[in-house]
Design a protein around this nucleic acid. Structure first.
Length: 934
DNA sequence: CCTGTCACG
DNA sequence: GACGTACGTGACAGGG
């Protein structure tokens, strides 16, 4: 490029420090094999740079780019204010030596790398942004740091690489409530606890934006501070004027730092393959070296194996890159036989089915994919049809060139059912359910989704796309590309076979690679037992339950739906009458405007979107004074029951079985609980009489009864055991009413004189403890003043000091290890525990709750896993799980026997792995529908 | 597609 | 000292 930076040019400025810290926290503490040098952050940093480069090759690619770093810890801001950034935690020991390596990495990628003694990276970014903007070019700052938002505008934008989101003027407005040019004013007032910028005490971003928008600028505001109505605010602004002005100088970026280079020096350069690969090889990044060698089409350098005795499992696998063009299509019996022979020789195979539907009850098999060696995979098309036939007739013919379905399944069945051949899949419950329709019972299995869940619950989700991107740095072909979306979407049997081969075989290849990756990690992380005893064996149990389904009576639902509709129409008329106009009662926006603007009710609070809050808690408060909100609450309840239950549930009745088949998501909840979807049968109403009647539609087949068994107070019992609270343990052993007992202890009321109100409060506190109690939360729940709630909590901890030490030690453990554990060794990772600000509170409470909720989840899983064997001789089926409840369908006459048997399994489910100091009690019920049984 | 709301343990 | 707060989920309707 001969011209100087100017119009038509596009400068990217990467916030290097942000990259480093994100890389450091995202990756485990990797070390260089040969000498143990910590290189986790460098590895992540390189991967991010590589990702950045490959993501920025299009027509909008930058013409100029630089990575900007901080240098030293002392800047001109410390001269103004010695405490600036003084409460920053020290850099972790294993990160420090990696900092210079990230500079080297940047240079190795042949990207300009800039820093300046005495200035922060933000100042350099500011200076370059202004220069580029003044020259008429565009700028994108790759960072999500709010301190940089003051630079946005006039061709300068930010890009949050984490959220994959551009931040423009509107984004800044959203964050600060003012435009970029006034951001420093707001920051000066609000201060920043992270950087230790003092600001104006008692004023946050919200208030600051309000003030600035009213007075125009910070200076005008300070000059006219006398006019402010709120006395406290006025005094603060007058008294702390110096401090506020100092804060502004601290947050104001320096747009004129003395740089010894120009924009033209930042022109994008081609990579220098030798230099880059030499660096990567020196770091001993095997996978990345390989990948980049291929991308640059050069011979990869040899990275010598570590001299130390290394087992093969420690070295990064030497796999070929994932290449969807290289997969095989299997169209004849010879080829099929070759694959079968190979599978038998290996003893394992990665396996995946392609079908016509996500609903396994209706999914027809379209094809099968297999892989036994990374990079080698095949697709066996079986039922593909012509995707281009426009005529309605004749297009349903199976295309030529495919093996016959029945013969192929007959050939594969011995493999799939061979106890000596391991079948590896991603979400095997799906494939198991599909194959069950074809009379194939696939076993034994491994499931990469469940391996990932055992390893990494709490860190990320466990879908194939996530895992492939995270562990193989490869983005799989999106299924959307084959099927399309929305109304025009096609089913997999209409996908051209050549396309299907690439997509489907790639999934098997990825699954096999993930399996190799996770297999050793399970041992190293000590979660093999969790995976083998709590995750893997649950797959066939859930598959069986889901396939059974539960009978739901359409007539009952339909009748209720009509009744609800009538009641709602009546309420709606009343509401419109009260409002004096017609409006959509179902629209929170319109309702808020009616209540607070038109009717002028006091106390309307707007949320972050600017809409009035109209939640049940708000309406309940208003309902004591006003008629309309009370009617809306009634209407909302009916609306919910009708739309979510009486109407939607009917659509889930399977036409073939007449039953409803939910899907349990085994990896859905970080704690180990299951989630239920399509439909969710874990949130069928029970708390109100009207809602409870929905359960009357859940019925047994004629000649059968529904039996419900549920654990009584399981989480409190686990807490009593884990925190080792003698008084609670004794109360449970003696079979006392635990809430009444808590109340008696706390309020010095004898058990005989217990009032329902006192017991209710104690119950709320007991639940609060499980949730990581806070004065605010308890106050809101009990609708009492915060001071009173805090007094209850203090009293509770005084009486049960063991609970407090349990909570403290759990949080300490989470901070030290980054995870917490259930009594059965399940790990729940808590990456946010080190966070600052309000997120810390969330993480703290989640860490306290997770071992309790998770242990209860483990216990019922153990019961479920044991159940099929124990009830195999009884005329009954296990149908549903609702966290602490199991629902069975039992032939008439066998009820008592089943209750006795299943109850014992549930009560003893923790044994023999674990002795719990408290008895686990299970209550039983039975009836002609779920309402009666529960 | 996101937000608010509300159903469950 | 302010901030925003009970834990874990999924589905539906409204509104851009």
């Amino acid at each position: 490029m001969s011209t100087h930076f100017g119009k038509g040019h596009h400068l990217h400025l990467i916030d290097g420090s942000a990259f480093i810290f994100r890389a450091y926290h995202a990756l485990p503490p990797l070390t260089r094999k040969s000498d143990g040098l910590p290189i986790g952050a460098v590895s992540g940093f390189c991967n991010m740079l590589q990702r950045y480069i490959s993501d920025n090759t299009g027509p909008d690619a930058p013409t100029h780019v630089a990575v900007i770093f901080d240098k030293g810890s002392h800047t001109f801001r410390n001269d103004m204010f010695p405490e600036y950034k003084a409460n920053r935690e020290a850099m972790p020991e294993d990160l420090r030596p990696q900092i210079p390596l990230t500079r080297q990495a940047t240079e190795a990628f042949n990207i300009a790398c800039k820093e300046l003694e005495g200035f922060e990276a933000d100042d350099i970014i500011a200076t370059l942004s202004v220069q580029a903007r003044d020259a008429g070019g565009r700028v994108t700052i790759i960072s999500s740091d709010k301190d940089l938002m003051q630079l946005v505008g006039g061709g300068v934008e930010m890009f949050d690489a984490m959220k994959n989101r551009r931040i423009d003027r509107d984004g800044v407005m959203e964050k600060f409530g003012v435009g970029p040019e006034r951001v420093v004013d707001v920051q000066a007032l609000a201060g920043d606890s992270v950087d230790n910028v003092p600001g104006a005490p008692g004023i946050g971003v919200k208030t600051a934006a309000l003030l600035i928008n009213e007075y125009g600028t910070l200076e005008d505001l300070l000059d006219r501070a006398e006019e402010i109505k709120q006395p406290k605010r006025r005094e603060t602004l007058i008294e702390k004027r110096d401090q506020i002005e100092l804060s502004k100088r601290l947050v104001q970026l320096d747009c004129a730092t003395p740089l010894d280079f120009t924009l033209d020096d930042l022109e994008v350069r081609d990579p220098d393959a030798d230099r880059l690969l030499a660096f990567l090889a020196e770091m001993e990044f095997r996978t990345l070296t390989k990948r980049i060698s291929q991308a640059l089409d050069v011979e990869p350098p040899v990275i010598p194996d570590a001299p130390a005795p290394s087992t093969s499992e420690d070295t990064a696998p030497e796999w070929p890159a994932i290449d969807s063009e290289k997969y095989e299509r299997v169209s004849d019996t010879n080829a099929l036989q070759r694959w079968i022979d190979q599978i038998i020789t290996r003893g394992y195979v990665a396996f995946d089915t392609e079908t016509t539907s996500l609903n396994e009850m209706q999914a027809n098999l379209v094809g099968i994919c297999l892989s036994v060696v990374p990079g080698e995979a095949c697709y066996i098309p079986l039922q593909h049809k012509d995707g281009n036939a426009d005529d309605l007739f004749g297009s349903d013919a199976i295309l030529d060139g495919q093996l016959p379905l029945e013969d192929t399944l007959a050939a594969l069945k011995p493999i799939l059912e061979d106890p000596a051949i391991l079948k590896i899949g991603q979400n095997m419950k799906y494939d198991a359910k599909v194959l069950a329709r074809y009379n194939i019972s696939i076993h034994p299995i491994d499931d990469t989704m469940l391996m990932s869940y055992a390893l990494n619950s709490g860190i990320h989700n466990h879908g194939m796309d996530t895992l492939s991107e995270r562990y193989l740095t490869h983005t799989p072909i999106p299924i959307k590309e084959l099927l399309g979306t929305g109304k025009s979407a096609i089913t997999f049997d209409r996908v051209p076979i050549d396309e299907a081969v690439k997509y489907a075989a790639e999934d098997a290849d990825i699954t096999l690679r993930l399996w190799h990756t996770f297999k050793h990690q399970l041992h190293k992380s000590h979660v093999t037992t969790v995976y083998e005893r709590l995750e893997r064996p649950l797959v066939p149990v859930l598959a069986q339950m889901e396939r059974h389904g539960i009978k739901v009576d359409r007539e009952t639902l339909s009748r209720m739906s009509n009744a609800f509709a009538q009641k709602m129409a009546g309420l709606e008329a009343e509401i419109h009458e009260l409002a004096g106009e017609r409006f959509n009662v179902g629209s929170p926006k319109q309702l808020g405007e009616i209540l607070f603007d038109k009717m002028g009710i006091e106390g309307g609070k707007k949320g972050k979107t600017g809409a009035y809050a109209t939640g049940a808690d708000v309406l309940e408060d208003l309902a004591t004074e006003h008629e309309l909100p009370a009617r809306v609450l009634d209407w909302r309840q009916l609306s919910k029951l009708k739309s979510t239950y009486t109407d939607a549930l009917q659509d889930h009745i399977d036409p073939d079985t007449g039953r409803v088949h939910t899907s349990y998501v085994q990896t859905g909840a970080s704690t180990g609980r299951l989630a239920s979807t399509d439909p969710n049968l874990q949130n069928i109403p029970v708390r109100t009489e009207e809602g409870r009647r929905i359960r009357e539609a859940f019925v047994p087949e004629p000649g059968n009864t529904l039996v419900s068994l549920d654990y009584s107070q399981i989480e409190l019992r686990i807490l009593a055991h884990m925190a080792d609270i003698e008084a609670l343990k004794k109360a449970f052993s003696d079979g006392l009413d635990i809430h009444a007992m808590t109340a008696s202890e706390m309020f010095d009321v004898p058990m005989e004189d217990m009032t329902p109100e006192v017991r209710r409060r104690a119950k709320a506190i007991n639940f609060g403890v499980i949730y990581g109690i806070s004065g605010f939360g308890l106050a809101r729940n009990l609708r009492i003043p915060r001071s009173e709630a805090q007094a209850f909590i203090d009293r509770y901890f005084e009486r049960f000091p063991g609970i407090r030490s349990y909570m403290d030690s759990t949080v300490e453990f989470a901070k030290a290890h980054g995870y917490v554990q259930t009594l059965f060794g399940r790990k729940i990772h808590t990456p946010e525990i080190a966070a600052k600000g309000p997120r810390a509170g969330f993480a703290r409470r989640a860490a306290i709750n997770a071992p309790i909720q998770g242990t209860a989840a483990d216990i019922i899983r153990r019961a479920m896993i044991r159940m099929p064997e124990v009830i195999s001789n009884l005329p009954c089926k296990m149908l549903l799980q609702v966290h602490d409840e199991l629902l069975f369908e039992v032939e008439n006459g066998a009820e008592e026997h089943v209750i006795e048997t299943a109850k014992e399994v549930m009560q003893d489910a923790a044994k023999p792995a674990l002795h719990i100091d408290v008895p686990l009690v299970v209550d039983a019920g039975q009836g002609a529908n779920w309402a009666e049984a529960h």
